[in-house]
Design a protein around this nucleic acid. Structure first.
Lengths: 144, 144
DNA sequence: TGGATGTAAATGCAGTTGCATTCAGATGTC
DNA sequence: GACATCTGAATGCAACTGCATTTACATCCA
């Protein structure tokens, strides 16, 4: 097992970190500027909106989003507080529950997508050809 | 100005976010497991160690690291507290200061590199050929 | 059945971040 | 020189995160 990365790998990594960081904060800035909640809320709402009946066990959500358990728990808290999600008890497992997206939540997800899509286009789409974007997608896929 | 990203751009973006997130947390985990401080400390120590006389104005550091001002200020606090950095007054500007890396700090940076390099190799290098890594670097460069 | 072990979710606490403001010193203008 | 404006850095406060633990229920197995 080799312990030293090639120069190429190192600079790809360094750039990956910087670029992702600055793109992510640019996108967050765009969302906030449009008066919307953070990206993580969007991701959660999107997952829920795609799930059957618009609901997921927190434990599923946490796998989808690659978040720690407590983090999901608190994100759901905030979404509930904002009226975008409701907690429902789980009939088949007394420990569990469901987080279900509300109509308001679906609406927010759709509205956020307008802004989010524009941000992706501005910060990513406009800088790559389709071929390049596909190539990037592939290369990143090898890292997953 | 187009407002809708292509499918390719959108999936490249989605993957960029997820992959970077999971790689970054894997690398952080490796550092922590080896008993080292977080990546941000390494980055700061590296910048300082490369600077002339091992010192930078916080305002420079902040530009290098793409961090908000207060964040740099507090990072320097912690590095000072840990003995890796010293604050020095700036002779030419009474408002300013220098953050200067100490010998202990240089030593920590070098030792962290062992672990960090291994992590990069494990999570990135071993998954890409040199050509692929170079290609990734290039594509990311277009996004910068 | 009942005790050990496992899993879903919440939470107390300490540490960290983001935001807005403050403070001190520089610079520009009249 | 005096005042307004700008810039570098720190900080109070509220929100957020990570970690470890707790609570509640499930499951396993003798």
């Amino acid at each position: 097992m080799n312990r030293k990365p090639s120069r190429e790998a190192t600079s790809a990594w360094a750039r990956l970190v910087r670029v992702q960081q600055s793109l992510q904060s640019a996108v967050e800035r765009d969302l906030k500027a449009a008066g919307y909640p953070p990206l993580a809320w969007y991701d959660a709402l999107l997952e829920l909106s795609r799930a059957p009946r618009g609901e997921l066990r927190p434990v599923e959500l946490e796998k989808q989003m690659l978040m720690p358990q407590y983090s999901t728990s608190r994100l759901v808290d905030r979404l509930v507080e904002a009226g975008f999600v409701e907690r429902k008890t789980c009939p088949v497992d007394g420990r569990g529950q469901f987080a279900a997206i509300t109509p308001t939540g679906r609406n927010m997800q759709k509205r956020m997508w307008e802004t989010y899509a524009a941000a992706i286009e501005r910060h990513v789409g406009s800088k790559l050809t389709c071929k390049e974007a596909a190539g990037l997608h592939d290369l990143l896929g090898k890292l997953a």
